[in-house]
Amino acid sequence: MNLVQISNLDKSYGQLKAVSNFTLSADQGELLAVAGPDGAGKTTIFRTVCGLLEYDNGTINLAGFDIDKDFDKIKPLLGYMPQNFSLYPDLSVEENLYFYAGLFGMKKNEYQQKRERLYQFSGLGLFAKRRAGKLSGGMKQKLALSCNLIHDPKILILDEPTTGVDPVSRRQLWDILKTLKQDGSTIIVSTPYMDEVALADRAIFVHNGKKLIEGKPNELLSHFNSAIYKIKAVPSSGIMDQLNQIEGITSRRFGSSIHLYTRPQQNMEVYYNRLSQLGISAESISPIKPELEDLFIQLMEQSDA
């Protein structure tokens, strides 16, 4: 069943066209990742879908209801966690959770069960009595997320929920999202982590308010049209400068090694000569598999060019 249906959405702020002709649909039990550079319009789209912003054109349909006509019916089904979700700093962790449970009219034992499960993922149970204002940055983020998950929303919209969350908790969070999804919730999440995008059922890349590509994460990689090579060499700034002077390849530092990107459909071998002059032997060069992050960067660079 189609739970989220956005069609031909347009939204501008004065002169600035923030979203143009954006269409998106999500089925029940689907987990959708939205990726895009800063300022691409992700937050605007999310806020519009949640009825927080007026829009210029298009239709938005959630759980079969038009948001302009039946927003009241949508509200109990919807969970939205904004990027800068604010907690009540003077209330404790538990009080914050309790308050949100109350907002959605949860029953007491239901709430307690849910709370324990959320404590498991967040590790916040140890700090239940601590005031939210005194939590660390990542702990706040986890509490914010927990507040939004407490009522088991049918449609969950999360704007960069894992920013500032440590790798362990990130995994636990995605485990929770998967459980929710299996229970039939539709989840739309934006994230700057491409490894998270890879975990979604479907990924959408937006840029300048437009949809660039859309598809299953592993299939999207076929859009990547260049090759990546890893060079085992110390990435001093000297060598980086010289590498970057070679026409046709882009080089980037990557930890203690260097990554080389060739132009689309070009063969690496033509460069071997030049590289050996820099003391890079053919043996130290090995091709590596592109990842979503590489695709992301390529898409952004190509659409900016």
Binding site: P37, D38, Q83, T163, G164, F296, E301
Partner: peptide
């Protein structure tokens, strides 16, 4: 302190390029 929190991948790389220049 978490300088790249919420920053997109393209910029994250550029950012680290800058940090390396500073370190150099």
């Amino acid at each position: 302190d978490e300088p790249t929190g919420g920053v997109d991948p393209v910029f994250r790389r550029r950012f680290w390029g800058m940090l390396y220049d500073l370190a150099d």
